[in-house]
């Protein structure tokens, strides 16, 4: 019976997983930097879909907002600033590819083995989950302010540290890419006797 086969959450998982993994590989295999950025967008978007599937809606939306909408736009912006013809596709030597493929394959096998090594990790999931356990947004928000209703430790200090870190990064990035003063070429040419 086909109805038994089509479990929508499983189907969606496989769909998102295929998109995420496929485009992650495309990022690796593509040589064209703008295409890579596009594939990365799709891969990260599909990852956000996976987050939504696990019930972590806030993290999924966050992934869309900050990762895909912010970080990647920034990245593409940088790509466009530097995408001169000669830098659009810098080829990698074949030797590097082979080494990377062997090591990557080994790493993948190791991680794949680990993923399926613990029986508890692929035991059948709980049949019924009470909604308040899944609904996590307000608990996330409270945890970030240091309030935990489930007795775990709060995250106020990490949150503050990250905030300060972001501020430092903001200033630092602004400093690195700061505006420089330069006389325009035309004016400089005119200056020359």
């Amino acid at each position: 019976m086909i109805g038994a086969v089509i479990d929508w959450s499983a189907f969606l998982f496989y769909l998102f997983a295929a998109v995420a993994c496929g485009f992650a590989l495309a990022v690796v295999l593509s040589n064209h930097i703008v295409h890579m950025a596009f594939y990365l967008t799709l891969a990260l978007g599909a990852t956000a879909g996976l987050f939504l599937l696990t019930g972590s809606q806030f993290v999924g939306a966050m992934q869309f907002m900050i990762y895909v909408g912010g970080t990647l736009v920034l990245l593409v912006f940088g790509v466009m600033l530097t995408a001169q013809h000669r830098f659009v596709s810098i080829r990698t030597r074949a030797g590097e590819w082979i080494t990377a493929a062997v090591l990557g394959g080994a790493l993948l096998m190791l991680l794949g083995y680990v993923a399926w090594a613990v029986p508890d990790w692929h035991a059948a999931p709980p049949a019924h989950v009470p909604p308040e356990q899944v609904e996590s947004t307000s608990r996330l928000g409270l945890a970030l302010t240091g309030v935990r209703m489930d007795g775990g430790s709060g995250y106020a200090l990490p949150f503050v540290i990250v905030s300060v870190h972001l501020l430092v990064v903001l200033i630092g990035a602004g400093y690195l890419a700061r505006a420089r003063v330069r006389v325009s070429d035309a004016a400089a040419r005119k200056e020359m006797p």
């Binding site: 479990d7 959450s9 499983a10 998982f13 997983a17 995420a20 993994c21 992650a24 590989l25 990022v27 690796v28 930097i33 891969a43 990852t47 996976l50 599937l53 696990t54 830098f87 810098i90 080829r91 990698t92 590097e96 590819w97 080494t99 990377a100 493929a101 090591l103 990557g104 790493l107 993948l108 991680l111 794949g112 680990v114 993923a115 399926w116 613990v118 990790w121 692929h122 035991a123 059948a124 999931p125």
Partner: peptide, 28 residues
């Protein structure tokens, strides 16, 4: 079977390895 943590870990592993390889081989 139903989707379990291991399935997600596998996806995570693929992304991770793809990222590592990407970091290693890209010259841009």
């Amino acid at each position: 079977g139903p989707i379990t943590v291991s399935h997600y870990l596998t996806v995570g592993a693929v992304l991770f390895v793809a990222g590592v390889v990407c970091m290693a081989v890209k010259r841009n």
